[in-house]
Design a protein around this nucleic acid. Structure first.
Lengths: 140, 140
DNA sequence: CTACATCCTCTAGCGACTAGAGGTGCAAGA
DNA sequence: TCTTGCACCTCTAGTCGCTAGAGGATGTAG
């Protein structure tokens, strides 16, 4: 029964050491057992859980959504309707974000292209910022 | 000489009242004069400045970048090279963010499509989250 | 035994606001 | 003139998801 230290857990899961402690503090990860010297000793299951959390965070899920997803994972007999709903909601968010960023990209391109690299009073970057009416896209 | 109250300034610029006070507190907006009863009294130029800030924030510029852009706007004889550089850097950021969100969207779609709407133990949403190796895109 | 890395807890900080408490100013209607 | 009621004031604390640092204990390799 080898003990997994927090550093080892961090390395294996890709979650940083202080973040592991943080997840424990907010109850996302059960408090692990401790060594004689009061050091955390993790189980392989904790590593999987941390990897799950990390992956979900990379996909932009919020902590509360992850909390729900984890309780679902903990009880595999439940319906996965909630998981599905959470993922779908996240998908909608991401699609909206992409649309808005595309509009933004277009606007930034106009600004940068219009810049004559001269003085500020002829600069389109400043000008466009000062006057929203000049925007090609209104949806931001 | 009509006085513009903070509420009026907020309405005209599209920046919320507490946010106007916040911008003043961090020195992004000069402290306006006050009425006898200690209430802020803004000038039309302040409204323009607030609108500028709001627009820049909508385009995702950070406060510190906006601070630089504002000092440029304040002195129109300067070269606009900095403004150009700031806008270009923001454009690169936005492009990267779009690429990463597209990958993310693809992955979420796979998750959601694979969900058989049954129980959690057959749910692809949970499964994919638990195992990053299943991702089609590695860049996240 | 001595370094030295790693661990521990605790508090404070980040960015960009937002919310709320507790109080004051001001304009319009009765 | 009084009162109602909204808008204003300052101040502190909270949001999210960590991250940094202080100050000390533990564990391991040479």
């Amino acid at each position: 029964m080898k003990k997994i230290t927090i550093g080892e857990a961090a390395r294996r899961s890709g979650v940083k050491v202080p973040t592991v402690r943080y997840y424990e503090s907010i109850g996302l990860l059960a408090a692990p057992s401790r060594s004689e010297g009061n050091q955390r000793s993790f189980e392989p299951a904790d590593i999987s859980r941390l990897a799950f959390i990390r992956h979900a965070r990379e996909l932009g899920f919020e902590i509360e959504a992850i909390r729900t997803l984890l309780t679902l994972q903990d009880d595999p007999h439940q319906s996965c309707a909630s998981a599905d709903a959470i993922a779908k909601a996240r998908l909608v968010e991401v699609e909206q974000r992409i649309r808005s960023l595309m509009a933004l990209k277009a606007e930034l391109e106009t600004m940068v292209e219009g810049c004559g690299h001269g003085r500020v009073d002829q600069c389109r970057v400043i000008e466009v910022l000062a006057d929203h009416g000049q925007c090609t896209h209104s949806h931001h």
